[in-house]
Amino acid sequence: MQSVFRFRKSSFSNPEVECVEIATNIPDIVAIRDSKIPEGPIIRLAPTPWNAFREALVTGAFNR
């Protein structure tokens, strides 16, 4: 299924720097990978946990 994901980087990313990429083109799956290893492992999540993780990042829940 890896080849059907359409990955993209954040619009905040420098296009020449590796980062995390996500794909949301498959219903009910958010796929996440490291752009340095495009053929490498892919984490697949349901949208609800992904959205909770994103919200925690935005609100600073992981900041110390």
Rank of each mutant, 00 (worst) to 15 (best):
W50L: 00
V58L: 13
G60W: 08
G60P: 09
F53Q: 08
E18N: 11
A52N: 10
N25A: 09
A61G: 12
P49C: 06
G60Q: 06
P41I: 04
G60E: 05
A52Y: 08
R64G: 13
T59H: 07
R44C: 09
P41F: 10
P41D: 09
S13Q: 04
R6Y: 05
F5W: 13
C19Q: 01
E39W: 01
E16K: 15
A61E: 12
F62A: 05
P47L: 09
N63A: 12
R6L: 04
V4Q: 15
A61F: 13
F12Q: 13
N51M: 12
I37D: 12
E16P: 06
F12Y: 15
N25H: 12
S3H: 12
G60F: 07
S10G: 03
K9I: 02
D34F: 05
G60D: 04
R54V: 15
R64K: 11
E16N: 15
K36R: 12
I42D: 00
S10K: 00
V58Y: 12
N14G: 11
F53N: 05
V30A: 06
S3E: 15
Q2C: 06
A46N: 03
I32C: 03
S10R: 01
A31V: 05
P38R: 01
V30G: 03
K36N: 04
W50S: 02
L45P: 00
I42W: 00
A52T: 13
V58P: 08
N51I: 05
W50C: 10
A31S: 07
I29H: 13
W50M: 10
I43W: 02
F7V: 04
E39Q: 01
K9M: 09
R33E: 01
E16H: 15
F7N: 02
L57P: 14
I43D: 00
V17E: 15
S11T: 14
F12V: 10
R33W: 00
A23G: 12
A31Y: 07
E21H: 07
F7E: 03
I29D: 08
P47F: 08
R8M: 14
M1Y: 14
N51G: 13
F53D: 05
S3T: 06
N14Y: 11
V20E: 06
A23H: 08
R6W: 07
R54D: 09
I32A: 01
E55R: 14
I37G: 08
E21K: 04
T48E: 13
S35C: 03
R33G: 00
V17R: 14
S35R: 00
N51F: 04
V17Y: 08
I32F: 00
C19H: 10
V58A: 12
P41K: 10
T59P: 09
V30S: 02
K9D: 07
K36L: 04
V58W: 09
S35D: 01
I37W: 09
A52E: 14
P15C: 12
E39V: 00
W50P: 06
F62G: 05
F7T: 05
V30H: 04
V4K: 15
A61D: 13
A31F: 01
P47K: 07
G40R: 02
P38W: 04
P15E: 08
S10I: 07
A56D: 08
A23S: 14
E18C: 06
